[in-house]
Design a protein around this nucleic acid. Structure first.
Length: 702
RNA sequence: GGCGCGGUAGCUCAGGUGGUUAGAGCGUUGGAUUCAUAACCCAAAGGUCGGGGGUUCAACUCCCCCCCGCGCUACCA
């Protein structure tokens, strides 16, 4: 199965969610590896389509629109354009970069939904969900805000608390409120269509656990096994929302397809759109990277429904469950579609010691990089390729970026090419010299050269892109070594024929580089070809020492890469820290005011000054401290979720504010008799509230 | 708490099915060289492979326990 010969290839990169810019971690995860893979296939004249596009549905889009005070449409237009342009400038060679807001995608998604529905594979169920009866809408998880049950953060979202990271369901929130109107939402019954994933467990076991144990990456396989073993559950494929793809059923007004139902279908609709456009000749989203002129409108089906098609999804590890479990189940259940042959998900790339995050300002956004280094897309590609998070999270640092550029691209690759060209200019009037009899060292180089294409291919085909990149660079190393050993600049004093032979071979190596480097560094490959006055050859013709004809007049030599100085790198590091600081200040708006209460309600609370007498850690809890507090009234036990902010020994003797008449509650098996009040700063830091001067325990606060 | 993936030279990382002195790139040090963007080329130093047990003639590689990082998931409030 794994080594089957395929007739054609369908390659996808994760659809970026169009709610904001994307950073280099995304590039390293799902885009650059896919692009290398596809370019390598194209160089072999394989029948491949490479599709991607913007994911434009889901609740976060309207959410972002609210934040930016605009419409969802304006949001997706803005970010679709931004992301698309960045991909283009970075050389992502999609045959089409589509959008899920397009009509053809709505149609495709609805068709697949209906196929499943008509086969009776979707279960209709009614459940209770929060509803805002002032705005007259069901509230998506994201639109409900309340106190996090885990950390007490007062503005946790219904699906997740952004402070402690816990995923939640809206019913868990304390004091839930609609973010639209501030009203308390009410539970109301609603109808949805569920895909019973559990029915497909035997099939998944057979397909993934049995037939892909050997060829799927361990991180992907392990994650899938974990999900399957844990027991799959029915999952709602529809939502109450007015932004998205309408559920194509009577009586389903106001309901749309779940974004994770429609998003992966975006790969299919993009392929459809591609063939629509190339067959009609009217290109809009399509940017065909090869000749599609023989294709008909319906040919997209071959790429998704023919068993001789190899489907590969390139994604980041956060998408594994959707691409390996849910989407394949959908495809399989239709009875019409093929499932992926592989899903080589990457782990995450960290940045300068911390997780990358656009919202926290700790990231390198694609458009920012391109703005600061407009002529260096390949340098980023190289820096990411040599450090892809293929087996575990990896680390990007600016210093490393600089070193990769200066010590490898400039010193090894660029330098070799420059040496060969400059010597040819100097001794042979910039023409490929004639080759005479080969010595042993030349024969060795020729035979070594012949081994590179297969070696690089083997790495790429097994999704080992770092290794492939290293092989590629080894070819330039070989060139440098060959020059160092043959010393043509010395031989030139005695034997010009010999020099000609050496430089001819050096130029042949350079010509090979110009082709073999193309999947990795397409811009530099093109530049190098121009310098060699060389049109390039197919991948299968590389490894030959006869790519350039003798006496060929070479083009203009220029530097392929230039050094990046320290101050440029320091400026980037400073910018990174500045952005983070700025975001911290701007982010996390003050928690919205709570609903008005009466004086009576307020006076029900008995808040006093207390004094911590004892504090100890709670076993098996990261956050809890068990405190003994003198409340003036008594000494009582209070469990407090502050262990991540205070060391027990530091807070003994401190005065605190305590709510003493809160109903007791068992926490980690211990009864907590009150609540310590804390101020939570924007960055999440907790601070105690204590009186400005020593105050006796039991003093009432009012 | 459960599960998954990781924890290998100063740094970033490789090391199918266990087998002679554990690898690469970068960095460091020394040498050689000057065609080349002070680049290239050669060489050396550097690791008790997270910790502890066990299986085996033999373990980085298999098994068990523990610690740490990341992720998913649960409960917890």
């Amino acid at each position: 199965m794994a080594n089957q010969e395929y007739k054609r290839y369908t390659i996808t990169s994760a659809l970026p969610y169009a709610n904001g810019p994307k950073h280099i971690g995304h590039l390293a995860g799902a885009y650059i590896p896919a692009d290398v893979y596809v370019r390598h296939l194209r160089l072999q004249d394989k029948d491949v389509v490479f599709v991607c596009g913007s994911d434009e549905h889901g609740t976060a889009i309207p959410n972002q629109a609210l934040k930016e005070n605009t419409t969802p449409q304006a949001i997706i237009d803005k970010y679709h354009q931004l992301i698309k342009e960045c991909f283009d400038k970075l050389g992502m060679s999609f045959d089409i970069y589509h959008r899920t807001s397009e009509q053809i995608h709505h149609q495709t998604s609805q068709e697949i939904f209906l196929t499943l529905y008509n086969k009776g594979l979707l279960n209709e169920e009614t459940s209770e969900q929060y509803y805002d009866d002032e705005a007259n809408v069901f509230l998506a998880d994201r639109y409900i805000i309340g106190t996090c049950p885990k950390c007490g953060h007062p503005s946790a979202y219904g699906d997740q608390c952004e402070k402690c990271g816990t995923s939640l369901s809206p019913s868990e929130l304390i004091n839930p409120k609609s973010t639209l109107t501030g009203k308390v939402p009410v539970l109301k019954s609603t109808r949805h269509w569920y895909l019973p994933l559990e029915n497909y467990e035997p099939w998944l076991r057979e397909w993934i656990l049995k037939s892909h144990e050997a060829d799927w990456k361990s991180n992907v396989y392990g994650q899938c096994k974990s999900w399957i073993d844990a027991g799959l559950q029915s999952r709602a494929m529809t939502r109450d929302l007015d932004w998205g793809i309408k559920v194509p059923l009577p009586g389903a007004e106001g309901k749309v397809l779940y974004v994770w139902f429609d998003a992966p279908i975006g790969y299919i609709s993009a392929t459809r759109a591609l063939f629509d456009e190339v067959s009609s000749g009217k290109l809009h989203y399509a940017t065909p990277q090869r000749d599609f002129s023989q294709h008909k409108k319906d040919d997209w089906k071959k790429y998704w429904q023919d068993k001789e098609t190899k489907l590969v999804h390139f994604i980041g590890k956060d998408n594994i469950v959707f691409h390996c479990i849910i989407f394949p189940i959908m495809l399989h259940a239709t009875g019409e579609y093929i499932v992926p042959d592989n899903v080589p998900a990457n782990e995450f790339m960290n940045l300068e010691g911390d997780k990358m995050s656009t919202s926290r300002g700790w990231s390198i956004e694609m458009h920012e990089y391109l703005h600061d280094f407009p002529d260096k897309p390949d340098v980023l590609r190289y820096a990411l390729l040599t450090n892809l998070p293929e087996a575990k999270d990896s680390e990007f640092t600016w210093k490393d970026f600089q070193a990769k550029n200066n010590n490898e691209l400039v010193a090894i690759f660029g330098n070799f090419v420059n040496r060969a060209l400059v010597l040819t200019q100097k001794f042979f009037d910039n023409k490929v010299p004639v080759r005479s009899a080969l010595q042993d060292i030349d024969k060795k180089v020729v035979s070594d050269l012949a081994e590179f294409p297969a070696r690089i291919s083997a790495s790429i085909e097994s999704y080992r892109f770092r290794e492939a990149t290293a092989h590629m660079m080894d070819l330039a190393r070989m060139g440098n070594k060959y020059l160092a050993e043959t010393e043509p600049w010395k031989v030139a004093k005695t034997d010009m024929d010999r020099v000609g032979t050496i430089l001819n071979l050096a130029l042949q190596i350079a010509a090979n580089l110009s082709v073999m480097v193309e999947p990795f560094l397409p811009f530099s490959a093109a530049k190098l070809k121009a310098m060699l006055n060389f049109n390039g050859v197919r991948w299968n013709e590389t490894g030959s020492a006869d790519l350039l004809p003798e006496r060929l007049e070479l083009g203009h030599a220029s530097l392929l890469f230039e050094k990046i100085e320290d101050d440029v790198i320091e400026a980037q590091i400073k910018k990174l820290h500045d952005t983070k600081t700025k975001m911290e200040l701007e982010k996390q708006p003050v928690t919205p005011a709570k609903a008005e209460i009466s004086f009576d309600e307020f006076s029900k609370m008995d808040i006093r000054i207390g004094k911590i007498l004892k504090a100890e850690r709670v076993e098996k809890s990261k956050k809890l401290l068990k405190l003994q507090v003198d409340t003036g009234i008594d000494v009582r036990t209070v469990m407090s979720g502050i262990a991540e902010h205070f060391a027990p020994e530091d807070i003994i003797g401190k005065q605190v504010t305590i709510l003493v008449n809160l109903a007791p509650r068992k926490i980690m098996g211990v009864e907590s008799q009150g609540m310590i009040l804390m101020a939570s700063d924007k960055d999440g830091t907790l601070r105690m509230l204590n009186p400005s001067a020593d105050t006796s325990p039991g003093s009432v606060i009012s």
